[in-house]
Simulated scan of single mutants.
Amino acid sequence: MDSADDAPTWCYDQRLKSGDRRYSAYVTTVSGIHGDRLRRRLNAAISELLQWAAHPEDDPPK
């Protein structure tokens, strides 16, 4: 893996009325079996979030 100094940086600027926010992180390329496992886990998490967002009324009352 790349060290943080060598890795490209990902940034997102969010403009708000109350003040701006900046999110950033280092990008790490992961390949092989470990990369496949991470992609499957990420796909599963995104799928669950999309299903939840499509049916918010299915959540139990609080």
Rank of each mutant, 00 (worst) to 15 (best):
T28I: 15
D59T: 09
V30Y: 08
S47Q: 14
Q51A: 11
Y26A: 05
R40C: 04
G35W: 02
N43L: 04
V30T: 10
D2G: 02
A45W: 14
G35D: 00
T28N: 15
S3M: 04
T28G: 15
R37V: 06
E57D: 12
G19E: 11
A25C: 07
A54T: 00
R21P: 00
S3N: 12
S47E: 15
Y23N: 04
D20I: 07
P56S: 00
T9Q: 14
Y12N: 01
D58R: 12
H55T: 03
R40V: 05
W52Y: 07
A53Q: 12
S31I: 03
D13A: 10
S24A: 03
E48N: 13
W52S: 11
L49D: 14
A45S: 15
S24Q: 06
P60D: 13
R39L: 07
D13T: 10
S31F: 00
S31L: 02
S3D: 07
R39Q: 09
D59V: 08
Y12P: 00
K17W: 04
I33W: 06
I46R: 14
G32V: 00
W10A: 04
D2P: 06
A54V: 00
H55V: 00
R15N: 12
L50T: 10
A4G: 11
D13N: 14
S3K: 12
R22Q: 06
E57K: 04
D20Q: 12
N43R: 11
R15E: 15
R22Y: 02
K17D: 09
R40N: 04
K17Y: 10
D58E: 10
W52D: 12
D2R: 12
C11D: 08
Q14K: 14
D59Q: 11
R41E: 08
A7E: 03
A54P: 00
K17F: 07
D2W: 09
L49S: 14
R22E: 04
G35I: 01
L38S: 02
W10S: 00
P61L: 10
W10C: 05
D36V: 02
G19R: 03
A25M: 05
G35F: 00
R41S: 08
R41T: 01
T9G: 04
A7T: 03
K62T: 10
D59G: 09
G32M: 01
T29A: 14
C11T: 11
Y26I: 00
D5V: 09
I33H: 13
R37T: 02
D20M: 10
S3Y: 08
E48Q: 11
M1D: 02
H34D: 10
G32D: 01
P56F: 01
A4V: 10
Y26N: 05
E48K: 12
E57Q: 01
D13I: 05
V30S: 11
R39F: 08
G19W: 05
A45I: 07
A53G: 05
A4K: 13
Y12D: 00
L42C: 11
W10M: 08
W52V: 06
C11W: 07
I33L: 14
T9I: 13
R15T: 11
S18R: 13
R39M: 04
R39I: 05
K17R: 11
G19F: 04
R37H: 08
M1W: 03
L42H: 06
Q51C: 03
T28M: 15
D58Q: 02
R41A: 05
D59N: 08
T9V: 15
E48H: 11
I33D: 15
A25D: 03
E57P: 01
H34R: 13
H34L: 06
V30I: 14
D20V: 05
